[in-house]
Computed example of a mutant assay.
Amino acid sequence: MCKYLENSGFGPLIGSYYYPSWYATNQFMLEVIFHEKMKRYKCLTRNSLLASAVYVPYYAGLDFRRKLRRRNVAARDAAGKELVKWLKKQPQWKGMSGRDHFLVTGRISRDFRRNSDNNSGWGTNLMLLPESQNLSFLTIERNPTSHNEFAIPYPTYFHPTSAIEISQWQDKIKLTNRTVLFSFAGAQRPRRNQNGLVRTKVMNQCKSSSKTCRFLDCDVKANGCDDPISLMKLFEDSVFCLQPPGDSLTRRSVFDSILAGCIPVFFNQGSAYKQYVWHIPENNSEYSVYIPVKELRAGGDNKIEEILRGISNERVVGMRENVIKLVPKIVYTKPNQNEPGGEVLEDAFDIAVKRVIERIDGLKRRKLNGE
């Protein structure tokens, strides 16, 4: 993972891909990126009594990765337990018992919700610790039943330096000639669960519609998705980008496709609609297509193509315009790069910080009112 820590967590530069703001960013680098941006955040205060919220710069995802293969759950849980033990001793904790604290995890919620001490169990128990119930967690995929988790976008490859750079990119993808009706970038998943079955169905339909669908194989042996440029080129050429669940309900690919101006096609409400409520519109049909699993199963081998072909050109143009409007909200810009006197960027980071502060303000008000 070391090479991905370069450039404030953005990873190595991808040469001069359109603009000099493209990086080979790893999808699990969010906590590093967020920390680097937070260190330069314009509203920091050294006086914790004046703070609206307290950010905890703990790299839970990298710690998880480091201890992923350890059989001993005590070793996997040690750093998280040490963290909350330390936090409880700090004077900042006492006023709200940690309810005004938040931290960012660069992996999905499931990786931190192991509810047994069985050594064969997956992940750590960080989010299930008693103290953690008071924290606000910002994560790339939330547990839909959790009261204190909030999903924010996966990092993409584009980290612009200015509003002008974003506008230039938006103008480019508006004019892109899209020669492929729909595409899918991904690899096979085990068929033992619902997600694996859906993905298999999607892959098979893409392959059977070879004249209208392009498939990029992300299998480890094929390594088709290791090259960001190949991936982005595919999405830029496509009108629609298929986004079936994979190892979990969400995918980084959702945000790569939005960045490319490609309309995402979802097969589960939990892949985006019930996740990124701070960053994407409530009216899902404005920017995406939803095909329920039962409709996918009931249809023939070309059901996806049939549905997508049935969407009017006028509606496609409108959806694409709305997708392109989302670009500023789903990218993480370079830290402290707003142009003096120019238009101030509000990126995915700014939206997340604003919303978590609003949440904590609400908790403080309820406490004052004795609720």
Rank of each mutant, 00 (worst) to 15 (best):
N148A: 09
N148F: 09
N148Q: 11
N148R: 12
E149Y: 05
I152Q: 08
P153N: 09
P155W: 04
Y157K: 03
H159E: 10
H159S: 14
T161V: 08
S162H: 08
A163L: 07
E165V: 05
E165S: 11
I166E: 02
Q168V: 10
Q168H: 14
W169I: 02
Q170R: 11
Q170D: 01
D171E: 15
K172L: 15
K172T: 14
I173M: 04
K174R: 15
K174D: 09
T176K: 12
N177T: 11
R178S: 02
R178D: 05
R178F: 06
T179E: 09
V180S: 01
V180K: 05
V180W: 01
L181G: 03
F182K: 03
F182Q: 02
S183V: 06
S183F: 05
S183L: 04
S183K: 03
S183A: 11
S183Q: 05
F184H: 12
A185W: 04
G186D: 01
G186P: 04
G186Y: 03
A187S: 13
A187G: 08
Q188A: 13
R189T: 04
P190I: 02
R191L: 14
R192K: 12
Q194C: 09
Q194D: 12
G196E: 01
G196R: 00
L197S: 10
R199N: 07
R199S: 06
R199W: 04
